[in-house]
């Protein structure tokens, strides 16, 4: 009973492995490269002949003339080799209050910014009063750590800072933000998001003109 199935088992394993494991990805690769080459190659954005990013992968932004993405738990922030979230639970002291550096271990830095710190920092950067409610995405870490989007409210709260730093009219910056906002699919599925990298690239382009 077992013997009779041995040979088919090994042969089917080999044949299906080659067909499904190799044949299928190559077939999809050929079709994908033929019909949607931009997406199939990672949606890379080229500026002045150099790849400056992928439309889909968020980048870390710190300077005040750029819109900032969400807090990221991928490596030291937006590390595409270490995608992931904090995996801290809702009652985690570390998540809410953060950690201080432990003076007993001078070699390692245990300090960690909790959501309390992130909220303070966000308010300070954008000159917001404590009464202004913050959008949740501004102070929470995304699931991938590479989230390319922020919520429209998050962008609106950063808008005056960016406009001031770039000496632009807020209305002009707002137009750029609107142009790079992705709406819900069919008006129902998912949430609207502003592509941070696309907006920042557009702002740079405007500055060069």
């Amino acid at each position: 009973m077992i013997k009779a199935q041995l040979i088919p088992a090994f042969l089917v394993t080999i044949v299906l492995t080659v067909l499904c494991g190799l044949g299928f990805p190559i077939l999809v690769g050929m079709l994908g490269q033929a019909f949607f080459p931009y997406q199939a190659n990672g949606s890379l954005i080229v500026r002045d002949g150099r790849v400056v990013g992928s439309e889909l992968i968020g980048q870390a932004f710190h300077s005040e003339q750029y819109f900032h993405g969400r807090p990221s738990a991928a490596g030291a922030g937006y590390d595409a080799l270490a995608s992931g979230g904090t995996n801290l639970g809702p009652t985690s002291r570390k998540l809410i209050l953060g950690n201080a550096d432990d003076p007993a271990t001078p070699d390692t830095d245990e300090s960690y910014n909790g959501i309390t710190d992130l909220a303070l920092e966000y308010r300070r950067e954008n000159g917001l009063d404590p009464e202004v409610p913050l959008p949740a995405d501004a102070v929470t870490h995304s699931g991938s750590g590479l989230d390319p989007h922020i919520s429209p409210r998050n962008a609106e709260l950063q808008l005056l800072r960016v406009a001031r730093a770039r000496k632009l009219a807020p209305e002009e910056v707002r137009r750029i933000v609107r142009d790079h906002t992705v709406n819900r699919f069919l008006g129902i599925f998912g949430d609207p998001g502003v592509n941070v990298l696309a907006v920042n690239l557009e702002l740079d382009r405007l500055a060069q003109r």
């Binding site: 870490h141 922020i150 409210r153 949430d191 609207p192």
Partner: peptide, 20 residues
């Protein structure tokens, strides 16, 4: 002071570990 209810321009709720 973080908004927990959603409106047209922000998600509200528990966004920790979720994508925009």
């Amino acid at each position: 002071g973080i908004a927990m209810s959603a409106d047209e321009s922000q998600p509200g709720g528990n966004m920790e570990g979720k994508e925009t």
